[in-house]
Amino acid sequence: MHKGCAYHGSVPKLPDIARNPLAFIAARWTPSPVAVRRAALAALVMSVVIVITGGAVRVTASGLGCPTWPTCNGDSLLGTREMGIHHTIEISNRMLTYVLCATVGWAIIAVRAQQEPPRRSLYRLAWAQFWVVVLNAVWGGLTVLTKLNPYVVSFHFLLSAALITVAVLTWQRTREGDASPRPLVGKPVRQLGQLLTAAAALLIVIGTLVSGAGPHPGESSGSYTVRRIPVDWRTIAQLHADFAWIVVGLTVALWFVLRAVDAPVGPQHRVRELFLVLMGQGVIGYVQYFTHLPAALVDLHMFGACLVWIGTLRVLLSFRERPPAEPGATVPAAATAPAASRVSA
């Protein structure tokens, strides 16, 4: 028995398991809060890993390494080694989807089994990850069926960003209570944070257009000419860089505002972390541009985009706190007022 977990032994009955397997597990195993947080974090990590491997598929021109979907080639689910390195890269990415499903499933089980008290909102978030994974898997198949249509591929990445969003929210909620959120900063600061989040979202959308117009179509066998977005990728890349500087400027402005109002250290730390990630991502972006988009740097830049989005969400979430709910307790008015004078998150 693992430390921090409780097990209630009994002889399992197959009909009970078949009717409601999650309830069956929950009745016999109670994970510790640490175990639940780790399960949610594992799902978040895998949601980023699948983006990196998906990027590797594109930059290595392996997007049609499996020319059909849901099978790989004709009636073969996995294909054969004779299909070459592009097939190996593509099928490896497809198989990692099952690993992602397993980690999300583990998070769902862990949240469901933590019964005291029941956390329905957290349970719904955990299940939301699963449905986004399913939707993105089907959409990934559509990218193959449309022969890597750039608009379809771009939306495939945006669905991955949606999965990361839900995964971050789930992980955050495992570290909080279920009381109503209490703001830690004033409304103008929260609005600035919302503006930063909107700008970061637009930055990611424009980044997908750069990829759709750029020199990495995802397939290079010569058997099929992959469509590209009909614009000069350098023009879109310049717009992408402009938005990146807007995000950096908003981040710096937010940090100064938080310092000026003596905000809690939590939001200040999250903004500082985001700024450092943006600086690293900016260096990668400019290096890849001036070196004509080498494959390794393009994939690294996609990883950086995930970190930027996670950092942005963590900034926004740091503006409030959720203490454990107390049955029958009322929240005093002072607790719901902006807590700019607090010194800790």
Rank of each mutant, 00 (worst) to 15 (best):
V99Q: 04
L307H: 02
V59E: 01
H156I: 04
P70H: 00
L122T: 12
S92E: 06
T103S: 11
Y151R: 05
W255S: 13
R314K: 10
P67K: 02
A200W: 07
L317S: 05
R19T: 12
Y123D: 15
T165N: 09
G84D: 05
L163A: 09
F243M: 15
V133S: 07
A345Q: 10
S32A: 08
S92I: 11
S211E: 06
L192D: 11
H240V: 08
L254S: 00
A167G: 12
A61Y: 08
R314M: 11
G207D: 02
I206W: 05
F243Y: 13
P70N: 00
V34P: 06
L313Q: 07
A61C: 09
V59A: 03
R182C: 10
A201P: 07
L258G: 03
G9A: 15
R38L: 13
V343S: 14
V257W: 10
T208G: 04
A56F: 11
I108C: 15
A162K: 06
L307G: 04
H2R: 08
A237F: 14
R124P: 08
E219Y: 12
L313C: 08
R94K: 04
P267Y: 00
W106S: 08
A337Q: 12
A329P: 05
A35I: 13
R58Q: 01
R270T: 11
W69D: 01
I206E: 09
I85H: 09
H269A: 15
S76P: 03
I236K: 02
G140D: 00
V166H: 09
P21A: 08
T71A: 06
L158E: 12
D178Y: 09
L22Q: 03
V261Y: 09
N149F: 02
S62N: 04
L22I: 06
T197Q: 12
P33R: 03
D232S: 11
S76A: 12
L293A: 07
L78F: 03
V153F: 08
V261D: 06
A335E: 13
P267N: 04
S32Y: 01
G218W: 01
I164K: 09
F130E: 05
A253E: 01
R322M: 07
S221A: 13
V134H: 02
R112T: 15
G54I: 01
T80W: 09
T312W: 04
R94Y: 00
R94I: 01
A295M: 00
G304P: 01
Y123Q: 13
M1E: 11
T336N: 14
P217K: 01
W69V: 00
P294E: 03
A244F: 14
L317A: 12
A137D: 00
V104K: 10
Q115E: 12
K13R: 12
V99P: 05
P183E: 11
Q194N: 14
F155A: 12
